[in-house]
Design a protein around this nucleic acid. Structure first.
Length: 116
RNA sequence: CGAGUGCAUUGAACAGCCGCGGGCAGCUUCCGAAAGGAACUGUGCGAGGAAAGUCCGGGCUUCACAGAGCAAAAAUAACGGCUAACGGCCGCCGGAGGCGACUCCAGGGAUAGUGCAACAGAAAAUAACCGCCGAUUUUCGGUAAGGAUGGAAAGGUGAGGUAAGAGCUCACCGGAGGGUGGGAGACUACCCUGCUGUGUAAACCCUAUUUGAAGCAACACCGUGGUAGGACAUAUACGCUUGCUCGGCGUGUCCUUUGGAGGUGGCAUCGAGCAGUGCGGGCAACCGCCUGCCAAGAUAGAUGGCUGUUCACGACAGAACCCGGCUUACAGAUGCAGUCAAAAA
RNA sequence: GGCGACAUAGCCAAGUGGUAAGGCACGAGUCUGCAAAACUCUGAUGCGGCGGUUCAAAUCCGCCUGUCGCCU
């Protein structure tokens, strides 16, 4: 089974919105909240504002691809929620990756590759 | 070569690396008493013509129901056929549009009945206000040829006729009824009779046909906890009831019931399936036979990222139980069959 | 995914096929030393969009668009 754990409960999303730290860039919004477990979990929100179903799935895929690329550098023990914005479906995953890396760096939960 | 019509097909392609979701196989590793599960390896598969809107018709499931008829409600509407069925499709009739190929039409019934027709107008449906004509002239009678309106004014035009007029009579046109011929039928051609009344049924309604309701978040099964009922223990301990004791209730175990969260099935190779420049029937929709081919199946929801090449530089857009249609959105590309115009011969 | 409802001035809203009620707000005036309140009044602005039936559509019919609710 996959090593990527997702957030499923609506309560946990709401908790991340209310209590987590937020970081904003043109194509991505990130909320980071420290959870009690040792797992690194993530969730993606693509609201109705972004567009039709094709645009929403496109945004989800781009964000997920960037997350897989960055996954090994993030410290465990956090819930991370990514929210797509209107620009996200028209942007390459490298731009999202750069924005995501910047957000993680600001949150201070990056670790070096060698530790993993 | 240009313009335009109908039908059908297609909806960027290829290669490499890293990833995602299922299926099958391997039996290597780990977990487990076992069934089995997880990882790994190999192999093959992985969004659409509209997957959309949820507008119709079915399959399937649960509930209701002995059967039949009436009523009520809803839907449909020329005629003939196709289909599992349909409000769909094909053909054809009638009407409208187009030079034409061709396209469009909720296209039954207004003498079965009820209602409505604002404003304007004399009058909106048993027409006499003005006008015209006649008479026994403060009035009465005849008359729809003419009159500012209106969407619609009482069959239209012309001639005869008359006191003035009028389908009162005649011709043509329109419409109605009947007859004969053609056609499966709607209908149509011709002949005869003969002129009585507008529109609206996507107003109520009448006629004919069809329809039980809800929907996979249906439904079935498992179901720690909980609910309800019963049995056992009341030996010990605790809490409540009481001033105290007894007694009663709860906390315990087992069985049954119900079923929240969650899980499994429903659910995915076989069906009203798809294809053939196949054969036969039919104008066609479609039907029969033959041959071949069928693997998306997620459950917060799988197709992505990067690099390179080519071109017309990529539109609308993402399955969620499954089929048949309709409607709506859509950059283009290709094929076939007609049409019109021009030029040349 | 499925089922259902609604859309009328800036806001709240009534409406039976025939001039679209009303209230709040906005504007002008009266009153006042000035304002508020009260009273009077004008004007502009509306039937979500596109088609169809009808002489005539906010209303009847179809198709789109948007908003809201229910089923877990």
């Amino acid at each position: 089974m996959s090593e990527y754990v997702t957030i499923k409960e609506n309560r946990e999303f709401t908790r991340a919105y209310k209590r987590g730290k937020s970081f904003v860039s043109p194509a991505l919004v990130t909320y980071v909240y420290k959870n009690r477990s040792n797992n690194l979990r993530y969730g993606i929100t693509t609201g109705k504002k972004i567009g039709n179903a094709v645009k929403r799935t496109r945004a989800r895929r781009v964000i997920r691809a960037a997350y897989y690329q960055l996954y090994s550098e993030i410290m465990p023990g956090y819930d991370i929620v990514f929210v797509a914005r209107g620009k996200t479906p028209f942007v390459k995953s490298q731009n999202v990756y750069a924005a995501m890396r910047q957000h993680m760096k600001s949150a201070g939960i990056l670790q070096s590759r060698q530790d993993k």
